[in-house]
């Protein structure tokens, strides 16, 4: 069974009297362990698609099955539970909690998930090391560089051992060297932790990292490419 199955997804936005069709009849599946990229120019519907997959937004039409469960049937609390336990998010602008230090930022989803303290400490310590930020664990986000912050966001996304990590333009606010480091880290974690990654980008350099690439154009899938070779 596919991890995610999207069937004929449509998403419309109403702006005044105008209806904008952001996603038009999109269908595809994501298997476990994939490192998948959604690419396309700005405004093609990448973020909207990722938001629908991540239960952040709801489609106007169509069904999204997460491990065979139609997410439209989930209550608000069940959606939160799904996001907490099964999905990790990495945002373009990092979205860390400014008043918490790095350790606490990564630990937060575990606290919400009521994971015992000793287990929390072990898991966070492992991830802090995995993303190479041991020295910065007690620092606040605003004391870190963009690349370091994104690594914190990756650690936070992975802390609950999710089945799926959604990254919306994870390298957009980073320089190319830092961006590559972040992608290499994501790929490493995909390989080692067996976590499914789906990320969006409009940067051809970034899309090279993906195993499979879904091209979006004007809200529809224009091409799906398998990218066997890694950079």
């Amino acid at each position: 069974m596919a991890l995610i199955s999207m069937n004929n997804i449509n998403k419309d936005y109403t702006l005044g009297k105008t209806t904008i069709h952001a996603i038009k009849g999109v269908s595809f599946e994501i298997d476990r362990g994939e490192f998948l990229s959604v690419v396309g120019p700005s405004g093609c519907g990448k973020t909207t698609l990722l938001n629908i997959i991540g239960c952040i937004d709801k489609p106007t039409e169509g069904t999204v099955l997460f491990e065979g469960t139609d997410i439209a049937t989930l209550s608000d609390n069940m959606e939160s539970e799904l996001r907490l336990k099964k999905i990790g998010f990495i945002f373009q602008s990092f979205n860390l909690i400014p008043v918490l230090n790095i350790f606490e930022n990564i630990e937060l989803p575990l606290i919400v998930g009521k994971v015992p303290k000793s287990e929390r400490k072990k898991r966070v310590a492992y991830l802090v090391k995995a993303v190479g930020l041991e020295e910065f664990a007690a620092h606040k986000p605003d004391e870190l560089s963009g690349g370091q912050r994104q690594r914190v966001a990756i650690a936070r996304a992975l802390v609950n051992k999710p089945d799926l990590v959604i990254a919306d333009e994870p390298t957009a606010n980073l320089d190319s060297v830092t961006g590559n480091t972040v992608l290499e880290l994501m790929e490493k974690l995909n390989r080692e932790e067996k976590v499914t990654f789906i990320f969006s980008t409009h940067n051809p350099e970034v899309m090279k990292y993906a195993h499979r690439i879904i091209h979006l154009k004007d809200g529809t899938i224009s091409e799906v490419k398998s990218n066997g070779g890694r950079p």
Partner: peptide, 16 residues
Amino acid sequence: IGEFGTLRSIGLKKHH
């Protein structure tokens, strides 16, 4: 508000 959105996206419920 964005911070609260982030918290909800990482799994916090509305009552949190």
